[in-house]
Design a protein around this nucleic acid. Structure first.
Lengths: 341, 341
DNA sequence: AATTAGCACTCGAGTAATATGAGTGCTAAC
DNA sequence: GTTAGCACTCATATTACTCGAGTGCTAATT
């Protein structure tokens, strides 16, 4: 258990380092007004904190720098929520104020504004399409062996995929199937479509339509939606951070970002609420100098997406957390109002 | 007019610099086997070439480096087409071999493979949607004041946009309009839709449908397609080039790439065939150390998109040009076969 | 027992001095 | 016209040196 004085010192070290990105020494610490004891005392306390693994030296005679464990402790125990400024609140509200009906645009703007407010990189995992409900299925023939299957959902999202017919297809039968599917499947979440089709609809079709199985297979084959789209804001913001001085590091980092699938794994599995992952806690080498703070957003009670801020380990946790909390709550409210029910 | 010897020297200087990114001196030049005269002679010739503005020094006693004018001369007069290796041809053909029906995927893969072959950044400007022909228009209501307009084209491309109704709309009338439009407009290029609607169809509608103008405005309002999508391959490849040593340069460059609209301007206005833009010829400060080589691709005779390679000014022009020529020809062939008529 | 002053020591960062070598232009000889 | 020779230039690397912010430890002070 840490003493109050140790907590104070740890807090100041981390706060200072977050602000200036420079190792913090005992002498400069002793000049802070909240500190009433001497630099020698601080040195002693620092030695203890170092032994506990909360801070580190970069070389024998350098000041101290927070360790990963130190950041973790800081986030878990020392963080005081920062109140948002009017300006910040206004900036966020401004997105929701203008009536944007395209979900995509809304999400893209969100990433934009979050990156501007934080000067870090904002990442938004788009709404889970699989949670959307089917509004209409349409199949449009392109030529004799190709067609496009189009799924429109309750949020106005349009998903489409090419179908290639293995043999000549009777268009009128295809049309019949589509009609039946529309009738029976309206309002069903996309994730349950396949299941529902085979459990409840296949039987009906069997009675009415020859070759129903081939056609059905083609349609359900288009239902494997890829992963949700990832939206970025300020992709290069993080490069201005002093920790990204050398080019090779930049390159691995950007490659990781561009790659998207690892990033997607990082974002998709999130419990609701705020999550903070520091450095190696992300389990990805390109991220070992970064921290990722995520929040989830939802329509009604249904959690449908994630919004995140990616910055250096030395990021302003307190501020980013407050921003994300506020932001995700607002976003959820707006979405719920727009698409609930 | 340059003498043969001057041409030879210029050629070797540029070839050498392209390969090693180091200023080329008279002594190291004199050791090349194609050179039979002494370094002193070379120095004299170099002085002349410098006076002509084709090469430069980085400082008083440095070797020579090609100037922008030098590169331009090299590209215009000294370039010998490089024969592609079997491996390269195979790599390109492999994309077209697997039957990919989604145009998007095909284009994305193209960017991918081109960047891998060149180790530069590949950029592909997606097929001009406006040249696609309308296959089917569909309007799907989402709730009482919103709907999605969906345009399916002859290539299987699906364009969609949200519509918000200003007032209560009679759905049956909307349906009528959509039916008429589909009947009259099938096969018309998207770019001509608006025109055709107002010139030929408005009159017909007037007779049948109340409020036809409001509905029509809503529909045509969705027809302003944004710019074509830009696909990238090896976005960060160019960062490994030695000319991108400092971080701020990287950042301006990446910001330019991410921005997309300036880049789009650069790509859209291209005459058919190969184009080479060197350094400041691109008229964009973030590109002043880069060269851009573009080629166009087409369906039938109709030019529909651009494929480009972005590298340092010091890029391997000969090889990239050969690759792009081959690639764009093949791509056009495949597309023509798939979507012609 | 806790705190602090004092001191020797460490090490990164900056600066200045110096050597190295690949390059140049010019001149005079071939 | 070509080339050898030479003095000169300048970026780069190496070295030595200083400076200062930092440390840990010890002994004196509270």
């Amino acid at each position: 258990m840490l003493t109050d004085r140790q907590l104070l010192i740890l807090q100041i070290i981390i706060d200072d380092f977050i602000q200036y990105a420079q190792p913090v020494g005992s002498r400069s610490l002793s000049k802070k007004e909240s500190i009433t004891f001497s630099s020698a005392t601080i040195r002693n306390e620092m030695a203890d904190l170092e032994e506990l693994g909360l801070i580190e030296k970069t070389h024998t005679s350098s000041g101290r720098v927070p360790s990963e464990k130190g950041y973790r402790y800081y986030v878990d125990h020392l963080l005081s929520p920062k109140k948002l400024t009017k300006k910040e609140i206004m900036a966020i509200r401004s997105i929701f104020a203008e009536k944007i009906y395209e979900l995509e645009t809304l999400v893209q703007k969100s990433a934009q504004i979050l990156s501007e407010l934080t000067s870090y990189t904002a990442i938004v995992l788009g709404p889970k399409v699989s949670e959307n409900r089917l509004k209409r299925l349409q199949i449009v023939p392109i030529n004799e062996d190709k067609a496009v299957a189009i799924f429109v959902t309750n949020t106005g999202h349009v998903e489409n995929k090419m179908i290639t017919f293995p043999e000549k297809i009777d268009m009128s039968e295809l049309e019949k199937i589509v009609n039946i599917l529309n009738e029976k499947l309206a309002g069903v979440p996309l994730s349950e479509l396949k299941d529902k089709i085979y459990k409840e609809i296949a039987n009906i079709l069997r009675k009415h339509i020859r070759n129903y199985d081939i056609l059905l297979k083609l349609i359900t084959g288009t239902l494997n939606v890829g992963h949700e789209k990832i939206y970025f804001g300020g992709k290069t913001n993080i490069l201005s951070q002093p920790e990204f001085r050398d080019v090779s590091q930049i390159q691995t980092f950007l490659d990781f970002i561009e790659q998207e699938d690892e990033l997607y794994d990082l974002l998709k599995t999130n419990p609701s609420g705020i999550t903070v992952k520091i450095g190696t806690e992300n389990k990805i080498s390109a991220m070992e100098n970064c921290s990722l703070i995520t929040a989830t957003y939802s329509i009604g009670e249904k959690q449908i997406g994630t919004v995140a801020v990616l910055g250096p380990k030395r990021m302003d946790y307190s501020r980013v957390i407050s921003l994300l909390k506020f932001f995700s709550k607002d976003l959820s409210q707006v979405l719920t109002k727009l698409y609930q029910g």
